[in-house]
Computed example of a mutant assay.
Amino acid sequence: MAGRAAPTARRARLGAELRRLRERAGLTTTQAADLLGTSPGQLSNVEVARFGVSADRVRVAARIYSCSDQALIEALVAMTGDRRRGWWEEYREIMPPKLLDLAEIEHHGTALHAAHSIHIPGLLQTVDHAREIYRQAVPEISPPEIEHRVSYRIKRQAVLYRTGAVPYRAFIHEAALRMRYGGRAIARAQLLHLLRTSELDHLTMRVIPFANTYYPGSGQSVYYVQGLVPSLDTAQLDQSHGPVFIDSEAQLAQYRLLLERLGETALGDAESRDLIHGIAQEL
Rank of each mutant, 00 (worst) to 15 (best):
M1A: 03
G3C: 06
A6M: 12
R10K: 13
G15W: 02
L18I: 10
R19F: 10
R24I: 11
R24T: 12
R24V: 09
T28V: 13
T29H: 09
T30S: 03
Q31T: 11
A32D: 06
A32G: 06
A33W: 11
D34H: 11
L36R: 02
G37W: 02
P40D: 03
Q42L: 09
N45W: 08
N45Y: 06
A49S: 05
V58H: 00
V60W: 02
A61D: 08
R63K: 06
I64M: 05
Q70G: 08
V77T: 09
M79C: 11
T80A: 00
G81H: 11
E90L: 12
R92V: 15
R92F: 13
I94K: 12
M95E: 10
K98T: 14
L100F: 09
L102R: 13
A103Q: 06
E104D: 04
H108L: 06
A114S: 15
A115Q: 09
H119G: 11
G122I: 14
T126C: 15
V127R: 15
E132V: 14
Y134E: 04
E147Q: 10
R149T: 15
Y152V: 14
Y152F: 15
R153F: 14
K155Q: 15
R156H: 13
Q157N: 15
V159G: 15
R162E: 15
A165W: 06
Y168L: 13
A170I: 06
H173K: 08
A176K: 08
M179R: 15
Y181Q: 11
L192P: 01
R196C: 04
S198R: 03
D201Y: 07
I208G: 00
A211I: 14
S218L: 13
S218E: 07
Y223G: 12
V225M: 04
G227F: 01
L228K: 12
P230A: 08
S231I: 14
S231M: 07
S231L: 08
D233M: 10
G242T: 00
P243L: 04
V244K: 11
L252K: 03
A253V: 12
Q254I: 07
Y255P: 08
Y255G: 04
R256D: 07
E260N: 10
R261C: 08
L262Y: 00
G263K: 00
T265E: 09
A266P: 01
A266Y: 00
L267V: 04
D269H: 03
A270L: 05
E271A: 03
I279G: 00
Q281V: 09
E282W: 13
